[in-house]
């Protein structure tokens, strides 16, 4: 597979094929990042598309010095942050809060655990993390970025990233273990 730099050069000379190869190469990692951060399939799809459009609009300004992956993820991080601040997010958040309230009335809080849906537990636990901790955990754990890379693309220091990771993972550990214990307790009953 051609290197990212080669693909970018080809895109700059007008190659549609190179654009397709580059987009396909990063589509899934980028979508996964956005999805895990946002937690909604449709919104993640739209945001991923927006991020790729932003990438194309500013591809001429990519300096070729740093890794392309980091550059692309920095666009994604900023775009998701903008989304959190946007009216669109507030609208969807209100709707999901309403849905959650209705659901909680219909089902008990432990309903998810009863269903042994560990995936939902993890998703729930990750989404309960503060934004910056969630961002650091997703980038480190799911995208295997180095702490220094996370610090660069989130425009913060290495120690701050470590602190965010530690706090986030501790919360996740507590939350997920509690979920497991509840699950076991339910099974014993």
């Amino acid at each position: 597979m051609p290197e990212d730099q080669e693909l970018i050069k080809e895109i700059l000379t007008g190659s549609q094929a190179a654009m397709e190869v580059l987009t396909r190469k990063y589509y899934k990692p980028l979508y996964a990042f956005v999805y895990r951060k946002i937690g909604n399939k449709e919104t993640a799809y739209d945001l991923t598309q927006d991020i790729f459009i932003k990438m194309m609009q500013s591809i001429h300004s990519y300096s070729q010095k740093g890794a392309f992956k980091s550059w692309l993820f920095s666009i994604a991080v900023n775009h998701c942050r903008d989304y959190w601040k946007s009216a669109g997010y507030r609208q969807i958040n209100k709707q999901s809060e309403l849905t959650e309230t209705l659901e909680s009335k219909q089902k008990s809080v432990s309903y998810i655990f009863e269903q042994k849906e560990t995936r939902e537990q993890v998703k729930h636990a990750i989404h309960n993390l503060p934004e910056y901790q969630r961002e650091a955990v997703i980038l480190k754990y799911y995208h295997h970025l180095k702490i220094k890379e996370i610090a660069t693309l989130t425009e913060t220091s290495v120690s701050t990233v470590k602190s965010r990771l530690k706090q986030g993972l501790t919360k996740l550990s507590i939350s997920l273990k509690r979920g497991e214990e509840d699950d076991q307790a339910r099974r014993q009953k």
């Binding site: 000379t13 190659s15 979508y31 999805y35 997920l176």
Partner: peptide
């Protein structure tokens, strides 16, 4: 928490949906 985090998998968009994104990008190629 590593093994538990692995459980949070992602359901990716279909090939047609990915292709739609690629087609949206075409006008932006110089």
């Amino acid at each position: 928490v590593g093994s538990l985090l692995d459980e949070y998998d992602v359901e990716y968009p279909s090939e047609a949906e990915i292709m739609m994104t690629i087609d949206r990008l075409r006008p932006f190629v110089p």
